[in-house]
Design a binder for these strands. Sequence first.
DNA 1: AAAATTATGAAACAGAAATTCCATTCGCCA
DNA 2: TGGCGAATGGAATTTCTGTTTCATAATTTT
Lengths: 277, 277
Amino acid sequence: MKADLDFPRDFDALRAMVLERRDTLPKRIAQVAAYALDNPDEIAFGTAASIAASAGVQPSTLIRFAQHLGFDGFTSLQGVFRERLRERNNSYEERLKALRGEGGGRTQARGILEGFLSAASRSLDTVSRNIDDPLIERAVDVLKDAETIYLLARRRSYPVASYMAYALGKLQVRYHLIESAAGLDPEILAFASPRDAVVAVSFSPYASGTIQSARVLAENGVPVVAITDSAFSPLAESATVWFEVVEADHAGFRSLAATMALSMALAVAVAERRRGA
Amino acid sequence: MKADLDFPRDFDALRAMVLERRDTLPKRIAQVAAYALDNPDEIAFGTAASIAASAGVQPSTLIRFAQHLGFDGFTSLQGVFRERLRERNNSYEERLKALRGEGGGRTQARGILEGFLSAASRSLDTVSRNIDDPLIERAVDVLKDAETIYLLARRRSYPVASYMAYALGKLQVRYHLIESAAGLDPEILAFASPRDAVVAVSFSPYASGTIQSARVLAENGVPVVAITDSAFSPLAESATVWFEVVEADHAGFRSLAATMALSMALAVAVAERRRGA
DNA sequence: AAAATTATGAAACAGAAATTCCATTCGCCA
DNA sequence: TGGCGAATGGAATTTCTGTTTCATAATTTT
């Protein structure tokens, strides 16, 4: 007889058990384990067949996974995932309530995190209200015909350009990321022609390098798509199309969430347009 | 014939429809309707038989209720209740839905932008639920004593590190951003001692450079704070403290919003702690 | 290297679930 | 009151789901 009664009663226990045993689990079982921890909602609602397909295994493997953990079948394992979903929603309600009630039990670091999360969230809200369709379309029109897209951003804005570079690379769109303040940039920018295009990102206080480069490029007839934070931005003057993105800030640091989302949207939209979609 | 295709797509619409018609509904159907609005979780998780018993009606009545509302059966009605449970507390999502409703004609690019905004918002929600205070405190403890903070991130994660570098610089915290895959990194990392610390960021598929460097540093006794996306991440093994941040994605590109917020919070919290605040 | 054990895939199976059907009851109007 | 249509209960039916089984592959042990 093998009365395996020590199955995990809740999600945390299950998670702990999986992590503890992960090295000893068979390959397919481990594959299911990883999927389960990463997609708990799927497990809670799906059927054995649908989950198995989504995780790339056989339904029977799911049951074996459950049995490895001490459950007597998939159904009882699923119960744990459902219970978690019920409780999570409850605790989240309470979390919101605590936040509204200005709960005192938060640590300082937690408060800072909430601040940044809130700033990011406000930025997203703002940009979704303020960006209008024709503007995006015009920007995409400009960029879709460019032989090379030059990415211009410094300091605070640099992370935006570097993520855009990553995306454009994946999308097989030719680009050039203007890296450093040092040396080579002027020469590289001298190659830019009116058949190329520039994406320039700068927020107040504007990095002078970005502003000047953008101006020079614009004077040479290279179309410029700008992302900046005000109509009075010196970037707006040089721009063919410009977006006003006002990021909320916390502790003196602005969120980049909205700018990131916009720049990624531009990258993907350009790639799709080129594919003729 | 009356092809009733206008069944309620979400819980709010369903609720509104029920309230509107409640006077005209047959007795048993009304009984089910009341039960459904009062016990939505039961509907989401239960079976038709168990719900029927719990509501004091026959299973067939449950189906009639669903059909009265325009669904083609109990199963599709249940789908609405499940969807609600998944997407509860996602205020941004609902706002987007409302926007679509009134806006009418969206362009393709606009759709892509909304996709990224929505992904960012979901990421923020998730991280605010899943990160707990003690974890942040421990990470800050590790970092506050470091002489130099080494920032380790490649490719997709690199923008995070570069923004963190910007912030740490402003905050006058000594750091070193590991730049390129080329040449100098090993020598620079060899300087790191147990009195320093590392912030490593990597998401699946994990950049091998980041993983290896983190492992070597950990073996040399340098504390590692990791931000990664799964308990199975190889980064988690090397980490002294690790955060699980699951970013939502759109069009194949993950949001960085949550990771950005977390990394900025760490930077600011460390600086404040050092100031003795 | 061979044998034994364990893991995996695919399909068959049994049971439960949702749905349909039909006889009966209820409520309403002539 | 009698007749008609809608509503209801309960069983029959069909669809689908979790589980089991078995043959095969992989892995470990001897």
